[in-house]
């Protein structure tokens, strides 16, 4: 992400601006009243604005929505892999694993690894937020959330005894 510069404007509000990858400086001025101004800076006189678009609260939401959607879906893909030190992973339960045949409570995966099992995928069926009584079967896929180390440890447990 580009580096965003913040400038306090006493009595008015706050301005954020940055240089786009195309080399244009654009910004948003947030008034204390909630109004916004979209700023496009001039290229020949970089201290002034070539274009100023005044937006009320409603316009701001509309514009944010329009700009936001594609951004959000792009980010979702990344999120599945990484949320600030958290990892989500899909781990199969191997036949050789000591966990196979025991309930989630007995396997005590969370207390051993710190990883939460958020769902179990069994064939066509998905058990969301499985309770402690659910018995793990060979061939299940566990959807696990935890630290990268915890996930590694869980992977080991699900592979062997």
């Amino acid at each position: 992400m580009a580096e965003v510069e913040e400038t306090q404007l006493p009595g008015v509000g706050v301005r954020h601006d940055f240089v786009t990858s195309d080399g244009e400086r654009i910004g948003v001025l947030a008034h204390r009243t909630g109004r916004r101004e979209l700023l496009v800076y001039d290229t020949t006189d970089p201290d002034s604005c070539r274009n100023v678009v005044r937006l009320d609260a409603d316009d701001t939401h509309t514009l944010a929505e329009l700009l936001g959607t594609s951004h959000v879906s792009e980010r979702l893909a990344e999120l599945q892999q990484h949320i600030e030190g958290l990892t989500i992973d899909w781990l199969p339960v191997e036949r050789a694993s000591a966990c196979a045949g025991s309930s989630l409570r007995e396997a005590a995966l969370r207390s051993q690894t710190g990883v939460s099992i958020v769902a179990i995928v069994r064939g066509e069926e998905t058990i969301a937020a499985p309770g402690g009584d659910v018995v793990l079967q060979p061939g299940d896929t566990l959807v696990a959330v935890g630290t990268p180390e915890g996930i590694k440890e869980l992977f080991r447990l699900l592979h062997q005894g």
Binding site: L29, S48, C49
Partner: peptide
């Protein structure tokens, strides 16, 4: 439409 200009903080200050 000069509130967003870069000289404006100097004026406001």
């Amino acid at each position: 439409d000069r509130l967003g200009n870069r000289e404006t903080p100097s004026v406001l200050s």
